[in-house]
Design a protein around this nucleic acid. Structure first.
Lengths: 234, 234
DNA sequence: CGCTCGTTTGACTTTCCTCAAATTGCGTGG
DNA sequence: CCACGCAATTTGAGGAAAGTCAAACGAGCG
């Protein structure tokens, strides 16, 4: 494999506080891999053999319920860790991870995890910070699901996606990977029909522009009003 | 203050792997405190001056939304840590903590946290394990809220409470602290009316026995059937 | 050019919330 | 010790939100 460009990697929050030498040592033990669109990066209940750092692309992390329903836990963006089961005290992955587009990632064998955390304290600390912030994120989602109505949750989800994967176009801000109404429904605990209706309504109001596996946000501020429940009900 | 009984404390999962000496050093720096029922232990957005270990009682952890709705994040049982904002990379508490009954806790100044984690690695590791397991818990709640209906969520909540604070009585398993329909509603993202209706229905079926600020679970297995959606709808 | 799969839309149903009103349990002060 | 009053609870009626299902449409790929 070709050697990795260090400039892509240093400067990521995960590696903050590491000396260049340590960084090299860590990255040197990774293998880099390519995951094609719609291919799994890892699967729920599988033995967690590796943990990953996404370098390019977007990964959808989905949990399946026993009865086959799916809930999207989060989208991973470039620079984020994923599959860090061991930092949660698990030996299996807690969810499925699917490449939403063609992706590039680094992978380390999970068995290196304890040594990394011990030998490079700031790497360990940074990782735990990630876990901490994901806990807070998860709590926000609990609050949202418990207190907001579907309309607000879908608006929130779109705004989150825009912040995370928004790409400026002439029409507005495009969510820069293929995403279906069903995907949005799985992020917000609703059905694809309800999402479709909402998007249609918002398209009539010129807040968004839809498309097949595509959403462009035209008026983020209007969506924010809806998300916060401050929009007048028609 | 009277010296603390070490036998109460050693043997807690948080202190697993610590030498008796280290344990003493840690506990020696704690102050113990009593919190009267319905008094706050700490409050949302407050500077996180301390973190706590609950020794006796039960603490309700509640997050308030900007518009005044409340969501119960979890109940803390004896032996559990709370207020560990610093382990999440925060300097303020993310929620309100209220004593559900008269409580006893140990408190450490938050500024000791980094030193503890560094000097007593297993304490640090145990704490991060706590954060990891709370992340997984939070994810389960997201799944529940996104996929289950109210009936299932309330049944799940009761079962969780029974496991955590159940006390065997002649009538069944009593949830051993005062809890209102409103409290249960805040755990499950519903209203006190719906909870009341469900409990009334279940009381008719002899699955539970209600009371003012009191719930006794008579037939946990039946509740489990409801929680898993395997109960025949009447 | 046709087929597949995502999307839209309508009609209908169900679940759950909202609000009002009555009722009950329990602690407190007379 | 009892009555009062507060707060929790119950119950009903009505309505709103969102789910279900069926059917048709349309975009993009091979």
């Amino acid at each position: 494999m070709g050697s990795l460009d260090p400039s892509l990697i240093s400067g990521l929050p995960v590696f903050e506080g590491l000396s260049p030498t340590d960084l090299d040592r860590i990255v040197g033990q990774a293998r880099s891999l390519r995951i094609a669109r719609d291919q799994p990066v890892f699967e729920q209940e599988q033995e967690a053999h590796s943990f990953f750092l996404l370098l390019d692309g977007h990964v959808r992390v989905v949990k399946s319920t026993p009865d086959g329903q799916e809930v999207t836990v989060r989208y991973i963006s470039p620079g984020e860790l994923m599959g860090i089961a061991h930092a949660l005290g698990r030996t299996t992955y807690p969810a499925n991870a699917m490449a939403a587009v063609d992706c590039v990632a680094l992978a380390w064998p999970s068995r290196l995890w304890p040594a990394f955390a011990a030998d490079y304290p700031s790497f360990g600390a940074n990782t735990y910070k990630v876990v901490g912030s994901r806990l807070q994120e998860a709590h926000s989602r609990v609050i949202e699901l418990a207190t907001e109505q579907v309309e607000q949750r879908v608006a929130h989800a779109l705004l989150k996606l825009v912040n995370q994967a928004g790409k400026k176009t002439e029409e507005g801000i495009l969510i820069d990977f293929p995403i279906t109404r069903q995907n949005i429904a799985e992020m917000t605990g609703t059905t694809l029909f309800t999402v479709s209706r909402l998007l249609s309504a918002w398209e009539d109001l010129n807040f968004v522009k839809g498309g097949r596996q595509k959403v462009t946000v035209v008026a983020p501020h209007q969506l924010l009003l809806i998300a916060e429940g401050r929009a007048r009900k028609s």
